Simulated scan of single mutants.
Amino acid sequence: MQQTILDRVDRVADGVVSLVLRGTTGPLAPWEPGAHIDLALPNWLTRQYSLCGDPADRESYRVAVRHEPLSRGGSEYVHLFLRPGRNLTVSLPRNNFPLVPAPEYLFLAGGIGITPILPMLRAAVASGAGARLVYVGRSIAAMPFAAELRASHPDRVDIVATETRDRPDFAALAAALSPRALVYCCGPGSMLAAAEAVFPSDRLHTERFRSAGRAFAPNRAFDVVCVRSGQSVQVAPDETLLDALTHAGQPVPSGCREGVCGSCELTVLDGEPEHRDDIGAPPGRMFACVSRALSSRLVVDL
């Protein structure tokens, strides 16, 4: 974990503020485009936000927070109560959405989904790659960093405000896609579904802020053995692995509880996990908030 102080709160769009967090004990941990951090809020909630500043700036992190009408308490607290000067703890950056080297890119962003895309576009341009961004939102006033993008990349960015323009034709964009280009998309579920329907899956990279809501077989009970302590914990059908471990005194750091942030990653030493996350767990790993077991027993590194 890292200690920071909230240096600035800036309104960057209707209902969106950016937070600039400055390190208090020296340089902050390095990060690459696509990374996010866990931000521990003073109301005991932890939320995940994509880093949207400059990776070369080791003195501060920048994130952006949209005020969600159905907030679970995180965005509401940030908008109504968080003020500069507050000490805040953040995690080391994690990256489930890395920018893979390529000669060309097409970036697609919807609303607050611009946050991980913003440093990606800068990095792509700096590398000499061909890069284009299609940025979609309800109105210019509601689209964070629209003015910044227009000023810095006027010839590369198409800003589509749907109150005055039709939504972009993803099928036409896919038909015109260079065979050398990768596509990066972040936004609401409807945008991701539209992108997944037309772009080649081996060249499309997506990040979700909410679970895709896929269907799985009914939950079954299973046992998990914590190898370091030797403790065996039963996970009932109506509870998550994360909750079962917490109740048994084996707490695991967590954030979204939807399988999209990666903060509750566990190393699996034996047994077969049932992956229900939207990240794509690497071999030998699983995310305890949503994933379960196909085998009757799992052994984890706890």
Rank of each mutant, 00 (worst) to 15 (best):
S232Y: 04
E76I: 08
T4K: 05
R210K: 15
L51A: 00
E196D: 11
V134L: 01
R285G: 10
P200S: 05
P188Q: 07
S295A: 08
R297I: 02
D301I: 12
E258N: 06
I112E: 00
A123E: 15
N43K: 13
L177R: 03
L45M: 10
G26H: 08
L118K: 15
R8Q: 15
C226K: 02
L108W: 02
R214P: 11
P282W: 10
I279H: 03
G284D: 14
R257Y: 11
V224Y: 02
L106D: 10
L21Y: 14
T46S: 09
R11V: 15
N87H: 15
L294G: 11
A151I: 09
C289A: 05
V198N: 08
S91P: 00
V300N: 05
V183G: 13
P69Q: 01
F287G: 06
V198A: 07
E59S: 15
P55N: 13
L108S: 02
R83A: 08
L92Y: 13
M1H: 10
V125M: 12
V252M: 05
A217V: 14
H67F: 12
F199P: 02
L121N: 06
R47L: 02
V198D: 05
S295T: 13
L39N: 00
F287E: 09
T4I: 08
R257D: 09
Q231K: 15
A109F: 00
N95M: 11
L241F: 04
L51P: 01
H205L: 12
A193F: 06
G189C: 10
D223F: 03
L45V: 06
P103H: 10
L241P: 07
W31N: 01
H67E: 15
Q250D: 04
L149G: 04
H275M: 05
P218M: 00
A109R: 03
H153C: 06
G73E: 11
R292I: 00
L121Y: 10
L242K: 07
F199D: 01
R220S: 10
D155T: 13
C256F: 07
